[in-house]
């Protein structure tokens, strides 16, 4: 069975950064429209089934209303609770069901939640979040087509994807966590409203992807010492508001800050980096764990993450392979 998994995070693109920056609101309606285009693209490309992860807004189910796709649509039997772990749980089910590709709508945080449930998922991430370093900005019809071609076997996943780096973090309480873009230590003892909005609070940035053209905390590293998706390394930046050197970085959409930095260094894959408490750790932009005095988190970057399908490259490959040329009757 050639199955495409499809999931959307209803809460992506709705946090407090809309108060303090020019971040856009990503409405349910716009997500429904994106999902619908993904479904149609995937089925048109030959996917036999699209497995919809139900979310607590029923975005996915509403997206296929009236399409009369019958048995081509399968609803996941899973009860979402409106929390982050919904995405993680759904990813586990995708894996168990053996879907051949997963389209995931959200920002960096959403993709992280998904990877927590299926680390090497065949993933086509679409940006509907606030910070979107990891996911693609691409027309969803094209994304659906690419995912459908991978699922149907028209495209070989290894040829149109590359495995992503993952920042693996051992927390002082023994829990293992991860991030796809950045792990950031901030001078805070609260997770509060989660998003990091105070540039002066940033103490250390460890970024697996540090693109100077991206938005978010990783841009601090990206504009100091770029590291791209394909580079076999990461970067660590030590920040200090009193530093003599600074970097202009857009830590939120439309919000460029002068962040003081004292040290920038390359981090090899497999190398262990220590993040020393006290402070709060933000994973892909969201404060998620508070460390006390003398507590240390240990981070290692490995290239063992999701196989990220590049939709543009996939479509171009398919066109070169004449996949879209079909015989017509009469």
């Amino acid at each position: 069975m050639t199955k495409v998994g499809l999931i959307a995070n209803p809460l992506a693109g709705k946090d407090v950064r809309r108060f303090v920056s020019a971040a856009s609101l990503n409405s349910d309606r716009s997500k429904i429209e994106i999902l619908r285009r993904c479904v149609l693209g995937a089925i048109d490309a030959g996917a036999e089934k699209v497995l919809l992860a139900n979310d607590f807004r029923n975005l996915a189910l509403r997206a296929v209303e009236g399409l009369n796709l019958g048995s081509k649509i399968e609803e996941m039997s899973f009860h979402p609770e409106g929390r982050r772990k919904d995405t993680t749980e759904a990813a586990k089910i995708f894996k168990k069901e053996g879907v051949k590709s997963v389209i995931s709508l959200g920002g960096d945080g959403t993709q992280r939640d998904l990877v927590l449930g299926w680390i090497d998922a065949p993933l086509l991430p679409i940006s509907t979040g606030t910070n979107n370093v990891f996911p693609f900005m691409v027309d969803p019809t094209v994304a659906g087509t690419a995912a459908g071609l991978v699922a149907s076997g028209e495209l070989v996943i290894e040829e149109v994807s590359k495995q992503a780096k993952v920042i693996h973090v051992d927390l002082p309480n023994g829990v293992k966590d991860l991030a796809l873009v950045d792990v950031v230590l901030v001078d805070d003892r609260l997770t509060g409203s989660r998003a990091v909005v105070k540039p002066d609070s940033v103490k250390q940035v460890l970024a697996a992807i540090a693109d100077p053209a991206s938005i978010g905390l990783a841009s601090i590293a990206g504009r100091s010492n770029p590291v791209y998706f394909n580079d076999e390394s990461a970067v660590s930046v030590i920040c200090d508001p009193t530093a003599k050197q600074g970097v202009f970085a857009p830590i939120m959409p439309g919000s460029v800050s002068d962040v003081g930095i004292t040290d920038i260094r390359k981090v090899e894959l497999g190398e262990t980096i220590e993040l020393d408490g006290p402070g709060a750790l933000a994973f892909d932009g969201e404060r998620d764990f508070v460390m006390g005095e003398n507590e240390v988190a240990k981070a290692t970057v490995l290239r063992n993450g999701p196989k990220v399908i590049n939709p543009i490259f996939a479509i171009q490959t398919a066109a070169s392979n004449k996949v879209f040329l079909r015989k017509r009757n009469s």
Binding site: L25, S27, R29, G192
Partner: peptide, 28 residues
């Protein structure tokens, strides 16, 4: 499901926060 979409419709910003956490609400 998110009432802030109604704020957007009238042209002003809105954000969602965990209403079971007083610190999150206070900060937001």
């Amino acid at each position: 499901t998110d009432v802030i979409e109604r704020a957007a419709a009238y042209g002003f910003p809105g954000a969602i926060v965990d209403g079971m956490d007083c610190v999150a609400v206070f900060e937001a």
